[in-house]
Design a protein around this nucleic acid. Structure first.
Length: 254
DNA sequence: AAGTTATCCAACCGCCAAAAA
DNA sequence: GTTTTTGGCGGTTGGATAACT
């Protein structure tokens, strides 16, 4: 890890620090956070700068007022993905993993705990609270999946620039790739939730799907997209995907 | 009004994989 | 091939504030 400067600030960021960081990133772009901290004259470690930027300063970040639809999405995604807050956050544009994690720990976990314990989710939640009321992992977390990086590129490139689908990600199971593109699947669970509530990210997704269909769309992932658009068996598909993921991660018994 | 407890959430921490040297 | 650096992630902490007594 990077060396920590002799004198670093900790705790809440001041407005001045925010301004400095915002201006620096606006000029020089993101990345090389250790250098950002040094060159911008911030007495912060690089990680702190990165976190501040990604969670609060970056344009497009929403704060507070998580809607019922977003809440519903979080619950469903958590059921599918567990505590993969970053993956969940990617399905909720403008929301950060930290915010979702906090929201889960302070609101949803309690809410679900109060509900009847008919679902495995509720049961697992009840069994996984530590002394702070936080949710502990339901199982030993697998190592991070490279798909996260793949997805970032995927989305970034889908808004006009060239797509990175031909990168060396072929070793990644298709179901994992599809798990990163389940907006349709999740949105169509409830007919009352129109697709209009699925924001820009789905538009990106649709572009990608249509792009795929222009060449060969016979891959399993394409079938999945087609299925999710034609049918509405959300729970069944979720279960199937959950099992696939669990199998891949070696968590079949969870 | 004052003290105590509970809650929220921004920020920190440690771990790890990937990239760079 | 090895070491170092960087970036990303989820868990946890602790200060601020609200709610309660």
């Amino acid at each position: 890890m990077g060396r920590i400067p002799k004198e670093i600030n900790k705790g809440a960021w001041s407005r001045e620090e925010d301004d400095i960081l915002s201006k620096y990133v606006a000029i020089h772009g993101e990345g090389k956070w250790q250098k950002v901290a040094q060159n911008a004259g911030l007495k912060r470690c690089g990680k702190s700068c990165r976190q501040r930027w990604l969670n609060y300063l970056k344009p497009g970040i929403k704060r507070g007022d998580i809607s019922a639809d977003e809440e519903d999405m979080i619950v469903r995604l958590h059921r599918l993905l567990g505590n993969r807050w970053s993956l969940i956050a990617k399905r909720l544009p403008g929301r950060t993993d930290n915010e979702i994690k906090n929201y889960w720990n302070t609101n949803l976990s309690k809410k679900l705990q109060k509900q009847p314990t008919s679902s495995s989710l509720s049961v697992s939640l009840q069994n996984n609270h530590n002394k702070y009321g936080h949710v502990a992992p339901e199982a030993p977390r697998p190592r991070r999946l490279k798909i996260v990086h793949h997805h970032n590129k995927f989305l970034e490139n889908s808004n006009g620039s060239e797509c990175d689908q031909e990168s060396d990600e072929t070793s990644i199971p298709d179901f994992l790739i599809d798990n990163d593109h389940q907006d349709n699947l999740l949105a169509c669970d409830d007919e009352s939730k129109t697709n209009s509530e699925i924001p820009q990210i789905e538009e990106d997704h649709k572009k990608v799907v249509s792009t795929n269909s222009t060449h060969n769309s016979s891959s399993p992932s394409d079938h999945f997209h087609l299925l999710s658009e034609k049918f509405d068996p959300l729970d069944t598909l979720l279960d199937v995907e959950l099992k696939k993921m669990a199998s891949f991660l070696g968590l079949e018994n969870d």
